[in-house]
């Protein structure tokens, strides 16, 4: 589904991604780990099409199509979803209104009419129950005054509403308490199918106990320096990153 070929990206003359190769197929779960500042969020942003980053070499291909010329919203319409590490506040815009706009814009792009209000309400009810979100919460301004954990849960609520084909979860686990982590992880698992794929960016093995990855990749200094199965995450938890950094230098 997703194929990243020799991807190089920079921001303000600083090279951040230095040749990423990654292939994600439908039905798979990939985990990306790596030290702070290694480029994980940057990779997520580049896949989502953030203009701030300049792709200097290589490309991102979705279903055989190079995404180079696609605006972020077009990528979203093609089914890419990013759960942000730092979700942005939009004062005065309720979660519900935001979701309604997002869903109807995506439908418009596909030549569909607006979703009927009844259907929308049903969807909201279903998904908010799944993620154990209080309905009152949905009438609050998007992310404004949300706690760290509430923001993350709200990101997954949006994912559930939009049902993306490729979901990238950037440190969705950080900030969640133990119960919330379970609820959110269960939500993600329920949304998983053989037709979609999930990329989880995380620092902790704990999330991967719930969302079990098929592959684990280690990003270091803008490159994937090691890939393996889910046991690699355990090994990292135990040993840290130094041995991999050393391995990479060799």
């Amino acid at each position: 589904m997703l194929k990243i070929n020799d991807l190089h990206a920079r921001v303000e003359d600083k090279d951040i991604l230095k040749g990423i190769n990654l292939e994600v197929n439908a039905g798979e779960v990939h985990a990306i780990m790596g030290p702070n500042g290694s480029g994980k969020s940057t990779l997520a942003s580049v896949i989502a099409g953030k203009e701030e980053f300049e792709v200097t070499q290589g490309n991102v291909v979705l279903d055989g199509e190079d995404l180079e010329d696609d605006a972020p919203e077009e990528r979203a319409h093609k089914g890419i979803f990013l759960s942000f590490q730092y979700p942005v506040e939009i004062p005065g815009v309720s979660v519900t209104n935001f979701m309604k706009t997002a869903i109807n814009e995506s439908r418009k792009a596909r030549g569909l009419e607006d979703m009927p209000a009844k259907e929308m309400l049903k969807l909201i009810r279903e998904k908010s129950e799944m993620l154990e979100i209080d309905r009152k919460f949905l009438s609050r301004s998007l992310n404004e005054g949300f706690s760290g954990g509430e923001k993350k849960r709200n990101e997954i609520f949006q994912m559930a509403m939009l049902e993306p084909r490729l979901a990238i979860l950037d440190e969705t686990d950080s900030g969640l308490d133990i119960d919330a982590l379970r609820i959110v992880a269960n939500g993600v698992n329920k949304l998983k199918s053989k037709d979609n794929a999930v990329v989880v960016i995380t620092h902790y093995q704990r999330l991967l106990e719930y969302i079990v990855p098929d592959f684990v990749h280690v990003l270091h200094n803008g490159k994937i320096v090691k890939s393996g199965g889910k046991e690699l995450a355990l090994e990292l938890e135990e040993k840290g990153y130094d041995w991999i950094k050393n391995e990479a230098v060799v």
Partner: peptide
């Protein structure tokens, strides 16, 4: 803020309006 909206499928003009 604009990118956040874009990422959810909302084009820039609509995002500004929102």
């Amino acid at each position: 803020q604009i990118f956040y909206c874009n990422q959810r499928g909302i084009e820039t003009e609509k995002a500004i309006a929102l």
